[in-house]
Amino acid sequence: MSETRWTLAWNERPVEEARNLNPAFCAELIARTVAEYHKARMAPLSMATAFLVLPLTLHKPARTALPGKANTTFATWIASNNPLLAELPGRVSRLRPISREALLFSIRYRMNTLNNGGLVPGSKPIKPSSRPATSTDDVNEARAVAALLGRWFGAQASESAILKGFGVAP
């Protein structure tokens, strides 16, 4: 098997990639989404939906285009953002190894736990206000959008509608 960028040790990856795509940070983003989703629905977030979190929060154009409030009508937003959404399935696929690693990290460190085939906050969940002493605006924006996604997804009729809307239905 030939090595790919995802099989390189973290200290061998480009510095920016290692900072932005490290399992701890990516797990934090997913955990924020899971926590807010669970708060809104009192149900687990499906694993399939969890794979949308990183492509939406780490990609600045997608993050910027997302609604500012969780009560934004999903179908209207989807209809008005078709050009952006055309690229999403490819980003989901390219970030799948990173998402998988982040999910394993979040479960290993009890940020999330598996329950009924999906994710719920674990015994050591992310606190909404927790942030490192130093951070960038970009990172803080990604954290805020991850939480917003949890609330927005939690307000939708079904997760299958979310996946279909984003063009990544399994």
Rank of each mutant, 00 (worst) to 15 (best):
M1V: 14
S2P: 13
E3D: 10
E3K: 09
T4D: 08
W6T: 13
T7Y: 01
T7N: 04
L8E: 08
L8S: 05
L8G: 01
A9G: 00
W10N: 12
N11L: 05
E12L: 15
R13L: 14
P14E: 11
V15Q: 15
V15N: 08
E16F: 12
E16I: 15
A18G: 01
R19Q: 13
R19A: 10
R19L: 14
N20T: 13
N20F: 06
F25Q: 12
A27D: 08
A27F: 02
E28R: 14
L29E: 09
R32E: 02
E36W: 07
E36A: 15
Y37F: 15
H38F: 14
H38N: 11
H38P: 00
R41P: 10
R41G: 12
M42Y: 00
M42V: 10
L45V: 08
L45H: 05
S46W: 04
A50Y: 03
A50D: 05
V53A: 04
L56Q: 01
L56H: 02
T57I: 06
T57Q: 02
L58W: 00
K60N: 03
K60R: 11
R63S: 08
T64Y: 06
A65E: 04
L66F: 01
G68C: 03
A70L: 01
A70G: 04
N71E: 14
T72E: 10
T72M: 10
W77G: 12
I78L: 05
S80P: 01
S80C: 02
L84V: 04
A86D: 09
L88M: 02
P89R: 01
V92N: 04
S93C: 05
R94E: 13
L95I: 06
L95P: 07
S99L: 09
R100I: 01
A102S: 07
A102Y: 01
L104S: 01
L104G: 02
S106V: 09
I107T: 13
R108V: 05
R110Y: 11
M111A: 15
N112Y: 05
N112D: 15
N115Q: 15
G117Y: 02
G117I: 10
G118V: 06
L119G: 06
V120G: 11
V120C: 05
G122H: 03
G122K: 02
I126V: 15
I126P: 06
P128Q: 07
A133F: 04
S135N: 11
T136S: 15
T136Y: 03
T136N: 07
D137R: 14
N140V: 12
E141R: 14
E141F: 11
E141P: 00
A142S: 13
R143F: 14
A146D: 09
A147R: 12
G150M: 08
R151W: 11
R151D: 08
F153Q: 07
F153N: 07
G154Q: 09
A155T: 10
Q156P: 07
A157S: 13
I162M: 05
I162P: 11
L163G: 02
L163I: 10
L163R: 08
K164P: 00
K164A: 15
G167D: 03
P170W: 03
P170I: 08
